[in-house]
């Protein structure tokens, strides 16, 4: 079966920075694919290129070389609306500039499906309500987005992405700034979406344990290059992570299960005294 997303020899460089101290950033010859129904975890240190890659996959940025294909069609030939019908992003997004309700926010996800129409159609409202039901947001439909808690807002944005009825869902740090309970909720929601609807998911996260827990495969980016792609066991390798993150890392298998536990190998406090 051909992959849903295929990235071949992808190159990207930001225009040369104006400040002399700023470092030039580039992605060079990235090649990977995402199979339909797969959860791919995208990990890597800060400024490894994770956000840039999301922007390239959603045509916010244009690659300087190589190609990205969605189900065999080059991204360059798809219009923004066509792309937004297939790829939805859950970004790290603050509340809207004006006081929109949850329902209004979720209905915005219907825009790519009915462009040129002034108001949404009844079927758009039905899809939006279904998306709110899937994320447990129906009760909060008429609440203003800026009054929601961090976890609720995250779920509202996931509902908006679901209203796009995408084939690929991209999440950018979905659990950042969320407490443990909301993290557990988001993990449960993503797992349900993947298993029950066969949603293909690209999960970008700093949390290696979360990424390992949810993903079929991990893609480790380092300074604009792919350091390794493979199963969580293959990628979460002590020596590799230590090299990429530049600090000692320990990876343990939790007893009784195949779960991996990644953490910084903290130096003992007593060692730092000298």
């Amino acid at each position: 079966m051909s992959p849903l997303v295929e990235v071949l020899g992808l190159e990207f460089a930001y225009p040369p920075p104006e400040g002399r101290r700023a470092r030039a950033f580039r992605l060079s010859s990235l090649a990977f694919s995402i199979a339909a129904g797969e959860v791919l975890g995208l990990i890597g240190p800060n400024s490894a290129g994770k956000t840039t890659l999301i922007r390239l996959l959603t045509k916010v940025l244009e690659p300087t070389g190589g190609r990205i294909a969605l189900d065999g069609t080059s991204l360059g030939t798809l219009s923004r609306r066509e792309l937004a019908r297939q790829v939805a992003v859950v970004p790290q997004e603050g509340p809207p500039a004006f006081s929109y309700t949850v329902e209004q926010l979720v209905l915005m996800g219907r825009y790519p499906h009915a462009p040129g129409r002034f108001f949404e159609r009844p079927e758009d409202l039905a899809v939006a309500r279904e998306a709110m039901a899937a994320t447990g947001m129906l009760d909060l439909a008429s609440v203003a987005v800026e009054t929601l808690s961090g976890g609720e807002r995250q779920r509202a944005i996931v509902a908006r992405a679901l209203a796009q009825e995408p084939r690929l869902l991209i999440l950018d740090e979905p659990t950042a700034h969320l407490d443990l309970r909301y993290q557990a909720e988001v993990v449960g929601l993503l797992r349900r979406l993947n298993r029950e609807r066969g949603m293909t998911i690209l999960l970008v996260s700093h949390d290696l344990n979360l990424a390992a827990e949810l993903s079929d495969r991990l893609l480790l980016l380092d300074a604009g290059k792919i350091a390794r792609v493979g199963s969580p066991e293959e990628v979460l390798d002590e020596a590799l992570l230590a090299e990429v993150y530049g600090c000692p890392v320990s990876v343990e298998k939790s007893p009784g299960s195949r779960r991996l536990l990644v953490q910084v190998a903290w130096p003992d406090a007593s060692d730092e005294g000298g």
Binding site: R55, T58, K59, V60, S79, R80, R81, L83, A84, R85, V87, A88, V89, P91, E93, G94, A97, M108, G109, Y111, P112, P115, Q164
Partner: peptide
């Protein structure tokens, strides 16, 4: 925000 608007088409 502009980026989210772009990603919504």
């Amino acid at each position: 925000g502009e980026e989210s608007a772009l990603q919504l088409g």
